[in-house]
Design a protein around this nucleic acid. Structure first.
Lengths: 193, 193, 193, 193
DNA sequence: TTATAACCGAGACGGTACGTCGCGTCTTAGT
DNA sequence: ACTAAGACGCGACGTACCGTCTCGGTTATAA
């Protein structure tokens, strides 16, 4: 059933994914689908969990590598992921989340929250290695936005893959900012990260 | 008709905007709507053009003002805009663009392209004032992504308004990067901006 | 305009005759049509008056001719008329009269009433010549129904042209009945003719 | 659903019978109607089969009764039927058959063909009892037209119930013609009955 | 070994919205 | 003054999916 949904999304786009269509393609009764999922969104969320976690994982710091190259690589993997079918599922769900609060809640409380935790851990470790000291989590959060923001901006708003130059610029920006930041978290109170 | 569509979007969300509903609320025949717009997306695109240009305009450089404050203010206006009804229209359309290529094409070839041109001009001018020399347009493009990316990332992916700390961090990042960049556009060839 | 309506009826059938279509075909604005006719039915009624009277006229008794042959000829003309375009207009209007009381009223108070008067006069004269004495008008009415009934029955109900044998049988029946009828109109009171 | 259609026809006439209206009145979804019938004409055809067969049946010859009275009674039942709601359905469908060939085909290949067979059998038996010998079927057909023609002519063309005098005249005409017809079917070749 | 229940495919059902057609009325330019 | 052109409010069309709801017909134990 997950496969049927996935295939339909690739072949016919999000609006081509219908409970009716999935049922026919999977050779299954609609009722059977409703027994397991409340809506097509829930189905796609399940495919996302299956297909997205691994490609978005932070590689375990091939230790002596330059942090900048490491970060650029990771951003490159994110950008590449968004071009694949599983990435299209994510973009579709983020898209649909703009139109439907329930989708938004499920997506953000589920996959996106977990992925952000993984990203915070990955980026935090990388920055610590880079600066030689632990990094404030709120700062890491802001730098994560600075790192992922351009990629998602290009994908969601401009509708094109992030180009390598942007990725490199972004990585350098983030690392510079992390190095320059004086005392971790000192005195900053308006941070809502 | 545009108002009716706008109101429905605010009251009932994107899926609550139906041709049928607009017609009833505007006291108009469906056919009349179809005579002027091909779909509800086109209607919303028109409301966008009406309502989004002015709030997103770059203020004409209150001359001696610090560029960092100026940029932070502009980013704040963008973030604030996304919280307003007109901003919800934009976010909805960007969301729908993920689900429907035709929407994507219209949105990007229309409003988004024009807005990006205004943004490039605005940011370019600001950077030139900041650095004291003209700035390469491709660099400006990348820095624009760096500036807007976090805001849209927070809005679209995390579903929350961008916090002031993020805006300030982002503005500083962008200006630092512009100042550091040695020779405008020198030697870079993989730039697809 | 009458021609346009006529043509459309022949080419596309009654439901293919639309005010919109007549206007386009006649190169005329709808409003102009409404200035002269209230509906497409009225237009067709006008074409009927133009095209039906002459073909349905009773030939002026080629005197010594056998009445039976004369009557058969007249019935043949009626049957043939119903096969022609003008006859199709009549059948269509009679058909539509079953569905719409207003059409029924206009058709019966107009063309059909006048045609029935011509038929009564024609048949009455023929019967008088045949029997050698004047014929009661109510009897003539009943015999007119007996004469036309089978033709319209075949056309409207069975959907086929009346065959010559039926016409001959019918003509003989009618003349026999007229000859046998003892005293014109004597004693009959329930006649509503 | 059939009842809803029937009621609407009586209350609002043929053009007041709409799929939309039937659905609302029957408390049913439009799609459900379309699942079972292609058009409102098919629905009315079904009501016809339910409601018309019995009232139009030939009574089984209360044996010694005078054939003339028997035939007059039968014609009276036909005339009375056309005044009832079920008869209005028949007249409407015959009317619509003049406007739409598909309706014509369905009506004539279905109900009308079957009813004609029943009529031929009924009239044939009556004539055989009257004349004392079997009657040629083609002759029976012509006499059936002679019998029913005036009734339908009055209903469809003149728009009024057939009066008793006409029915009596018609019955006598038909029986006289049957008695006089010398040798069943002898020599007649142009008969297309 | 049989019964009995859980589960399934199939698809009918009441709905909502779709995008289209023709209606009859109206407004607007152009001659 | 009258026209063609066509926009307008309207009501119905026939279609696509929605999510809910019976239906029989398997399996797959439990008696």
């Amino acid at each position: 059933m997950l496969d049927a949904a996935d295939d339909l999304l690739v072949e016919r786009g999000f609006s081509g994914v219908t409970m009716e269509g999935i049922a026919v393609r999977a050779g299954v009764a609609k009722q059977t689908i409703y027994r397991w999922w409340k809506s097509k969104v829930d189905i796609l969320l399940d495919t996302l969990v299956d297909d997205a976690e691994q490609p978005l994982a932070w590689r375990p710091g091939s230790s002596p590598a330059a942090p900048e190259e490491e970060l650029t690589d990771q951003l490159g993997r994110v950008a590449a992921f968004l071009q694949e079918p599983a990435g299209q599922v994510l973009l579709s769900l983020i898209g649909h989340a703009q139109l439907d609060p329930e989708t938004a809640a499920k997506l953000r409380d589920g996959f996106l929250r977990e992925q952000r935790e993984r990203d915070l851990a990955g980026l935090g470790a990388l920055l610590a290695r880079h600066t030689g000291r632990p990094v404030d989590e709120r700062l890491t959060g802001r730098l994560l936005d600075a790192a992922l923001g351009p990629i998602f901006h290009q994908a969601l708003v401009l509708g094109r893959p992030a180009d390598p130059a942007t990725l490199a610029t972004t990585a350098r920006l983030v690392l510079d900012a992390a190095g320059r930041e004086p005392v971790p978290g000192a005195g900053r109170s308006s941070d809502a990260e």
